[in-house]
């Protein structure tokens, strides 16, 4: 047996052993979080498997936090529109996302509406369809409708 053959055999053996170990113990990370509930704080989207890891992750800048929130709202809006969801279910989904960013009164936060506008643009909603969404989701609030338009224009 040459050195190269020996190396290959050794490598195969190690792979086989690791495979056995993986099969025995189950690959990939386990989540120890309990089954999530509609209580969003429980169905945390962030994984945490260390008992002492309860930091608030508060060191992100205002700007980064706002961008992260808007991006989540935009991505949700896009997914919702593309899936053809009914209007009545839309606010609950916004509420679920907002809660994870520490926001309960999401209607007062113009970032929400700008995110909605950006999501509509990402979902390729045409300008002539935009008014329907603005009226249905902006709840007749002129500020909200303006923010949707702003987010939409910026993302196109």
């Amino acid at each position: 047996m040459t050195n190269r053959d020996g190396f290959r055999t050794g490598r195969r053996l190690i792979v086989a052993l690791l495979l056995t170990a993986a099969l025995a113990s189950g690959g990939c990370s386990f989540s120890y979080s309990s089954k999530s509930s509609s209580d969003s704080s429980k169905s945390s989207s962030e994984s945490s498997s260390s008992p002492f890891d309860s930091s608030s992750a508060s060191s992100s800048s205002d700007r980064a936090a706002k961008q992260s929130y808007q991006q989540d709202i935009a991505d949700y809006t896009k997914a919702y529109v593309i899936s053809g969801g009914a209007d009545s279910g839309f606010p609950n989904g916004i509420g679920d996302i907002a809660r994870k960013h520490g926001v309960s009164d999401w209607e007062s936060d113009q970032s929400t509406w700008e995110g909605v506008g950006a999501g509509l643009a990402a979902a390729n909603v045409k300008p002539d369809q935009l008014d329907t969404y603005k009226n249905n989701w902006g709840a007749g609030d002129p500020e909200a409708m303006k923010s949707i338009q702003r987010g939409y224009d910026r993302a196109r």
Partner: peptide
């Protein structure tokens, strides 16, 4: 937590990874 190793994918500040959660594969961020 993970005796078979683990993998993830990172876009800018966000890391996405699938975990084994109560019998399901669940995407975490």
């Amino acid at each position: 937590n993970s005796s078979g190793g683990h993998v993830a994918i990172r876009f800018a500040d966000r890391v996405y990874h699938f975990q084994h959660d109560h019998g399901l594969v669940r995407l975490r961020r």
